[in-house]
């Protein structure tokens, strides 16, 4: 599906067809529906917003209204091949705990987040303002993004938590990865994508 956002297309390519997927913060179910219809994936989406829940139900998805900050205690260990979370980590109250939870219930984790090390963020900070970018459109006082990080920060956390990174890609809002992004991911990448598992 070409209409799929570039980052979601990359995730879809990472996921082995026919596997079991848990999508944390699945939103309107775009990714999960794509995986179900085109990759023969089975699984569930977790979401907190009632309008999104209704949209997911409309799409025929299994969706469970859940507050991710309360953890994933409804799910048993290793019950999924992949646990996916797109652009929600930075809005979590305890991102470190949730990462561990992802690898408790899933064999592999896939995560995307807006890179706070992107040059436009750095530039705005240099000018003395909290960054407002296409990936981070909210103002400091009304942003849901309470735990922003850079690629380096995230990788440090993974190291501390014994999480093994299998794959990393950075993209911007419109294009897939270019040469500059590959050379200087923490400066040029707008959105970071990681695939990881337990060490």
């Amino acid at each position: 599906m070409n209409s799929l956002r570039p980052e979601l297309r990359i995730i879809a390519d990472w996921i082995t067809p026919g596997s079991r997927v848990l999508d944390l913060g699945c939103g309107d179910g775009t990714l999960l529906a794509h995986l179900v219809h085109h990759h023969n994936v089975s699984g569930y989406g977790l979401e907190i917003d009632p309008a999104n829940i209704t949209t997911c139900v409309q799409k025929g998805l299994n969706v469970l209204q859940t507050d991710l900050d309360a953890g994933l205690s409804d799910f048993d260990e290793d019950s999924f091949d992949y646990v996916v979370m797109t652009e929600a980590l930075q809005a979590m109250r305890y991102p470190d705990r949730l990462l561990k939870e992802m690898l408790r219930v899933g064999r592999e984790g896939i995560i995307t987040f807006p890179n706070f090390g992107h040059w436009s963020c750095r530039w705005q900070l240099l000018l003395g303002n909290m960054p407002v970018t296409p990936s981070l459109p909210a103002q400091w006082y009304n942003t849901p993004n309470i735990h922003l990080c850079t690629l380096t920060d995230f990788e440090k956390l993974c190291k501390n938590e014994h999480i093994h990174i299998l794959e990393r890609t950075v993209v911007d809002r419109t294009h897939e990865s270019d040469v500059l992004m590959r050379l200087l991911p923490n400066l040029m990448g707008e959105i970071a994508l990681y695939r990881f598992r337990k060490d």
Binding site: Y44, I53, Q65, T66, D74
Partner: peptide
């Protein structure tokens, strides 16, 4: 819901 999940049943919850 949890009991249904344990058995991989199709379920949505609002």
């Amino acid at each position: 819901v949890k009991a249904l999940l344990d058995g991989d049943k199709e379920v949505s919850y609002a």
